[in-house]
């Protein structure tokens, strides 16, 4: 198992480094100089030259990359072009807020997705199972941003129960107001993912239930509910871990959209802002941070999987 984990760790490092190269390359190597992008079409050559000097853009590319990269390692994300502040703290603050959304969402997806999937698999063919399958179809087909719109129309505009946009920090506004701002964004984030996870858990649970070892356990006279809990469930949940890791990636995508719609001041919204306003350091920094989180989530999932799966955890032969 240690060699497996070592390889995975090395892979994560490699991916992060490669991402820095990729981000840098795309931003700097594509046609049009960066300064031109920032200043717009009608900038004078002098202005462009001055900006390039200021930003260090007239230096060779690899030097620029190296400066930026070493800065990253130190935690220095450069200066935000639009906000006249260091980019690092801006990113971190936004990260903190997105993290709230993300963690609540992942926990909900895990609990509800797995729970509904298991329920469906153990009650195959009943109304609840069929209903769930139908809903899954439905939820997968509705785009996230449209959900947001629908949910805003319904809960915020027509019913007026919940605020449509914005965010209130916990310590300022108290628990209820803080939670209110979170309910709509979180629900739109989790709906599609719950459908996805429950579907997968259902089929993986069914596979476990129909396996030979479950038949053998029944033949030993073990009561059905113990068979399901002790024999089928652990084997069915292993693939769920991998799926949840992939879902973190989808969640990230969803967060970008959801934050944009609900004007939630998180990392996703910051990224869109950076793109719209050509704030290069913020944009690059944001992308690196998001990729790092995704890579770490996948690594965590792999570690969990390796620990829980005896076939990877224990190797060699016995007897």
């Amino acid at each position: 198992m240690t060699s497996f984990l070592a390889r995975r760790f090395a892979s994560v490092i490699f991916v992060l480094w490669a991402m820095t190269v990729l981000v840098f390359a795309i931003v700097h190597v594509l046609p049009g100089s960066v300064a031109h992008m920032i200043l717009g079409e009608f900038a004078t050559t002098d202005a462009i030259a001055a900006l390039e000097e200021r930003l260090g853009l007239n230096q060779p590319l690899y030097v620029q990359y190296w400066t930026w990269f070493t800065g990253l390692l130190r935690g220095d994300f450069g200066m935000s072009l639009t906000m006249e502040r260091p980019a690092g703290p801006v990113i971190l603050e936004a990260l903190g807020r997105s993290a709230i959304l993300a963690s609540i969402s992942i926990v909900l997806v895990a609990i509800l997705g797995i729970g509904l999937g298991i329920h469906s698999a153990t009650h195959v063919g009943t109304w609840s199972d069929r209903g769930l399958t139908l809903m899954q179809y439905f939820f997968i087909a509705v785009p996230e941003f449209f959900w947001c719109i629908l949910v805003i129309i319904f809960f915020a505009v027509w019913l007026g129960w919940l605020p449509a946009t914005g965010y209130a920090p916990l310590h300022e506004a108290g628990f209820w107001r803080w939670a209110q701002h979170l309910i709509l964004p979180v629900s739109t984030l989790v709906l599609g993912l719950i459908a996805h996870v429950s579907r997968l858990v259902r089929s993986s649970m069914l596979e476990a239930i129909e396996s030979r070892y479950v038949l053998a356990a029944r033949a030993k006279g073990i009561p059905e509910r113990i068979v399901l809990r002790r024999h089928a469930l652990p084997n069915a949940l292993l693939p769920a871990i991998t799926v949840l890791a992939v879902d973190v990636g989808i969640l990230i995508g969803g967060i970008v959209v959801v934050e944009s719609v609900f004007a939630f001041p998180g990392l996703g919204r910051m990224l869109i802002y950076a793109i719209d306003n050509q704030d290069i350091p913020l944009m690059m920094g944001g992308m690196i941070v998001i990729t790092a989180i995704y890579a770490l989530a996948n690594l965590a999932a792999d570690i969990l999987y390796a620990v829980l799966n005896p076939r990877i955890r224990v190797s060699g032969s016995a007897g």
Binding site: S211, R212, Y213, A216, A219, R230, H231, N235, P310
Partner: peptide, 14 residues
């Protein structure tokens, strides 16, 4: 009961 394929009849996680 003893089934045919011992690899399949044993739970891989226990």
């Amino acid at each position: 009961v003893v089934f045919q394929d011992p690899a399949a009849a044993l739970n891989p996680s226990l």
